[in-house]
Each structure stands twice: as C-alpha cells, then as structure tokens.
Design a protein around this nucleic acid. Structure first.
Lengths: 363, 363
DNA sequence: TTGAAAGCGCTAACAA
DNA sequence: TTGTTAGCGCTTTCAA
C-alpha cells in the first residue's frame, strides 16, 4: 500500500507516478513509494538538506525550522533510510559481531552487552556465526565487508590468515576478544587462557590436592588453558601432572559430556582428587556423575569450572569456577568502536580484562 | 590507506584525487576510496552494468565477459557494497530478528537457526533486543525500519499496538513466532501455550498425582501456560487445583529461583506431589532443592520442565519436559521471508508447530 | 548480449 | 543559518 501523507499535494515530485502525461525519460525509474526526506522537507517548507540537519544535528538549525521539521516527521511517520544515509555519509552505523555459535552460554553475555550498548549509541548489531569447525569463513567475511560496517567484533577465532588479511585491508575497525594474542589485527579486549590454567593449578595445589585431571572442550583456547594447567600441575609436583588426562569433547560442551568425562577418567585413573573443567556445564556434569556414584564433593573430589554461569552459585555444592567479565568485555569493545568512529584514537589498543577464581564450595 | 589496484592506470576516474589540476567543481566530493564496481568494469573492459550482471546474474552475460569480470574481481579484491546495492534495488538482504534478550537458553536455538539458514540464502541477521520490561520499543522499531530489512522475525512480544501498527504500515514482511495469536500482523509460526498447560495437567493426572503446583516466570506466555494448567488441574479434580500457587519470578528464569520456589511452596503447601515449572532451569533448581531436602524425585515429587534444554536428558533423574522445536520454527520463519522476497505467496500464513511432552524419569 | 542514462534517498562540500 | 549542487556505488529502465 502506498504511504499516506495527510494534507499535502504531491504535485511537484519529479517522478511522481501521477504525471503519466509526460513521456518517461530514458532510464528513469519509479521510487519504492515510501516517504522520503524530500517529502518531509516539502511539508516543512525547507530544503531537504535542512530537514536532514534538523534530524541529525538539531543544534545547527533554528528552533523554528526544527519544530516545523519535527511536525512534518510526526505527521508523515517518516523513518530515515539508513541505507541511503550510510551510502552518502560512508557511515553505516552497523557493527558486525562474529561468534562461533550463539548456542551455548559462553558468548551470550558479550552478544547481549554489545547489542544493548551499541543500540544505545545508535548502532545496530549484525550477527555472524563462524562455526567451530572449518567453514565458509570467507563467505561470512564477504557478507560482513559488503555491508561496510563501522566495526567488527570478533569473538572466538578468525582462523585463516587470508581472512585476517582481508579484514585488515578493508580498513574496518576490528576488535578481537576473548583472548590475548601478541599481534592483534587492530584492537583487542581479552584475557590470558594460559594464566587461567596456571592459576587454577596453583589454587588446587594450595588446597592440598594431589592427583589432578581435566575434562575439557577441544577448541583451541580450552586446550591452552588445559595445557598450561597440566604444565603447572607437574611443576608443582602434583601426581599425574605430566599425565593429566586430556579429555577432548567437541565444542560447545555439554553436561552429558561432563558425566561421561568423569566416568572415563575414574576408570583410567581412580585416585583423582581434583578436576578442572573447561566449562561450568561440564563441571555440573561431573558433579552429577559424582553424586550418582556416591563420591562426595569437595571432600573426595574437588571440581573447578569455567565461565561462572548464572546457575553455578546455586548448585549443591556451589561451584568454584573461573569468572570472565563478559559484560566488561562487551562494553570495552563497544567503546573502542564508538570512539574510533568518533575519530578518537586510544593510546592502548590492547586491554587485558583478566579473570577471577570464584571460590565456592566445590573446591 | 588507499586501495591498490595492481596494473591499471586510474586515469579516467572522474573524481580521482590525482587530478588536482582542475578546480574542484562545486559540490563535488571524494569517494571513500574503495574499489568499486566501476573499477572492476574498467579493468575487465566492460560497462559497469555488465560487470554487475556478471556478478548477480551470470547467466545473462557471455562466458567470455564473465571470465574477464571474475578475473578483475579476483585481482582487485572487490567486495560489492551492499548498502549501495540495497538502495538501488530496494532489497537489503537484511532480516531483523527481535528477541527479548539473547541471554538465557530460550531463544538461542531460533536465533542460531535463523542466522544460519538466512546466511545460506544470502541474508544477514540484524539482532534486536526488546527487553522483557517496558522499554524503548519505538526506538528499536525505528532502527529496524530505517534499515529497510527484507523481513522481521519477532520472537517474544511486540507489546504496543502502536508498534505493531507501524510495522504493518511499513510493508515489511513480518513473522511472529513463539505463540499463536488469532490476529497476527502478517505471518506466524508458533504453538499454543494454553494447550501445553492443559496437556501437562492431564499428563500429571494420568500419572496419579494429586496435589499440583507451579513455579513459573512472570512473562505473559508463561502465565498463560500456568493459567491453563491450573484450570485443567481443577477440572480434573486434582487437589489445590483452584489454589495452585502462582510463583512468579522475573524472566529470564534462573536455577536459584527454582530452588527458592520449591522452598516457598513447601512451606505453604506441604502435600505437593507434582510441580510444573516454566523452564528447565527452574525445574533443575526444584530438583536440586528437593535433593538437598531429601525429597525423592519422582517418588515423592514429580517435576516437569519446559524447553527441553540440551542438558535435561542428562540430569539425575532425567527431566520430563515440554519440547519446542526451535530449529523448526527458525527454518519455517526463514522460509517465509525468503519466499516472500522471491514473490512466492504462501496460502497458509499461520503455522502451528505444536510441542511434545518428553517423558523421562522426573515425572 | 551489451550499454547509456537516470536515479535510489541521503549527506558532503561549497556558497550565500 | 539555509540552500545548491553533486555524487555515494549500485541497479532499473530503455534502447541497440
């Protein structure tokens, strides 16, 4: 249905469908029929650019004009076409957010925060899923670059060097998150997976644990946590340190895998008294399996998770886990992009948000 | 940094920054500096429109031209500007997906499926969060309509009638999901919350339960499930049917609320032998609380969840719950929008995907 | 099958 | 403070 502008004769629209009298010029074409800035300007009795200023930089326009334009917008129900605006201004106000998958609790907090924070600043989030396995990363990249976003937030990995190079070449501001790499593409908000593994090992050692093991996802970051955990465990002289069972499950991790993980582990290495899991869901699985076998936590078995999911504090026993401040990461990342768009260059492009071990009952 | 086109003299670019000799015409402006279709066309020795056809409708050009254009794309690393394309063609290949929040497991599956399915068809997902509480729905709507998406998928609620009206007026295809309303804005893929409440009551009645209660979120849909559960319970003569404890927690629901819910319930109504929870997370909380009180499930207390989260089958005991096919909903919704964009009109705009009660150990 | 012209709806640049 | 002009990069329309 065509839009309805209350009391204004659309007589002077150059290509208004009404003037079928004149022969159509070669190459001319009809508009989609929506209300445009031009309609608003006409109704307000100003030039289009003035209407544009009234909407985008109200301070640059007289109060009188501002009022007239706002009235016209109100009456017509005009909604600016951001595609056109983006094309003309070379600012899309769109930010691409890439996660391996939106399923699973891991990246929820960051996606939520980014969407909310950016929306408050007038940006929209375009969601991309890279998948954990090798997939068409190049197709995703093409789709992203094609939209000319004002920023890209990468959570999880951009695997191919080719993809990283193209992203860099595109000139789009990039924020990598969830890791600390020495050579980021552009900006970085993350934390050290190695440090986490090390600190958890020390924590368990200080708690007097002797035989440690891990139940971990097989994605690269999980593996790095696990490797450094194993290394530090060995260095501290914890038994089977060099022999820590790497129990690789596919990402994203599940409770069921945690149950199975503990079962397998106990079969191979009955003396285990501490387990570091690569997610809280795995940890919950370990706890349930232990419970069903009559193994007492933490007396006989200490369990440490990763992620500090919202439910972890309410488990029985409460889960000791590693907390990552996803909200903080999201806010920093958003700030990076908003600042860059505003022409503000920050001195430090790498932020380490760290982590904390939340000490509860399970370890 | 300016883009680098290997061996092609950019002599004839109208506004090339190089020709600073001529005085700048009034109103002329510099391009963003990226590689455009025009550059590709020039390199391939064809007109821009021909290059455009080679990329969008390869069958409409000769194999020779196709090859030349593809070579040129390859050499330049050209990525089409979808903002410009969208403006010209009035097709944005963007779909807005609105959920109350991306936090919490409820809408993950549908967001995941939509993102993936639509990406495969060449569409990108723009994410919007409406929030559970009354919020700036109009601002969100403005942001959505401003992008001129080829479709909007609404999950959860569009509360204000004003918002619904504007969406309708915008002419954008709309798919509402997660509910069955008699008068959808446009298209609808959902299920009946009332039926779920009723069927769960019957299920528990058939299982010989006598005193039922609910632990439920306070969002509108949860309440509808709970209300019809209460009604049917009463009709079937289950004790306290008319007196079912409505235990309203704020959405999204949490495990902790489930624990507290059971605790409160037992205080008020000790004889309860069955509980219907409005989410699996609440159900898990109820189970943990029961466990910590030595209440045996299902012998003393039957528990039914909602959502069939991935972990529910691995709990101890396995959770009986209501399954909603989020993937199916996502696929149908995507299909609706893709078809509409292709001009295919479906006869039936309302799809009821139903639900199923997954019978496991807890009830 | 290819191309010339025009224009999608908006804003940058310049001028008054 | 307001307006004129041109053009963002692409695709539609029409013609050859």
């Amino acid at each position: 249905m065509p839009p309805h502008i209350p009391p204004t004769p659309p007589e002077s629209r150059a290509d208004s469908p009404e003037d079928g009298a004149e022969p159509r010029r070669r190459g001319s074409r009809k508009s989609a029929g929506g209300i445009t800035l031009r309609d608003v300007a006409q109704l307000a009795g100003v030039a289009p650019i003035t209407a544009s200023r009234a909407l985008n930089t109200p301070s640059a326009v007289s109060p009188k004009v501002l009022q007239k334009v706002r009235d016209a917008v109100e009456r017509t129900g005009y909604v600016p076409n951001l595609l056109a605006g983006g094309l003309a201004s070379n600012k899309s106000r769109l930010v691409a957010v890439v996660v391996p998958t939106v399923i699973g609790p891991v990246f929820q907090e960051i996606v939520h925060t980014l969407t909310e924070t950016l929306a408050a600043a007038g940006y929209q989030v375009m969601l991309g899923q890279s998948g954990y396995e090798n997939s068409r990363e190049d197709a995703l990249l093409e789709a992203i670059i094609g939209r000319r976003p004002d920023g890209v937030v990468l959570t999880g990995i951009m695997r191919s060097a080719e993809a990283r190079k193209r992203l860099l070449a595109s000139g789009i501001p990039v924020v990598e998150t969830w890791d600390l790499t020495p050579t980021p593409i552009d900006m970085l908000v993350g934390f050290s997976h190695e440090n986490i593994g090390r600190e958890v090992a020390r924590y368990l050692h200080a708690a007097g644990r002797k035989v440690v093991a891990v139940v971990g996802g097989r994605d690269e970051r999980s593996r790095r946590r696990m490797d450094s955990f194993a290394q530090e465990s060995a260095a501290l002289g914890m038994a089977a340190g060099a022999d820590v069972a790497m129990h690789h499950v596919t990402a994203p991790t599940t409770l069921g895998q945690g149950r199975k993980g503990l079962a397998d582990l106990l079969e191979r290495q009955p003396g285990i008294d501490a387990i570091f899991c690569s997610s809280d869901l795995l940890a919950l699985g370990v706890m349930i399996e232990a419970q069903s076998r009559g193994i007492r936590i933490p007396e006989q078995l200490a369990v440490v998770g990763f992620g500090d999911l919202e439910f972890s504090r309410d488990l029985q026993p409460q889960l000791t886990t590693v907390r990552i401040d996803g909200t903080g990461i999201g806010q920093r990342a958003a700030r990076f992009i908003i600042d860059r768009a505003a022409g503000i260059e920050v001195a430090e492009r790498i932020v380490d948000v760290g982590f904390s071990i939340i000490r509860r009952e399970s370890a």
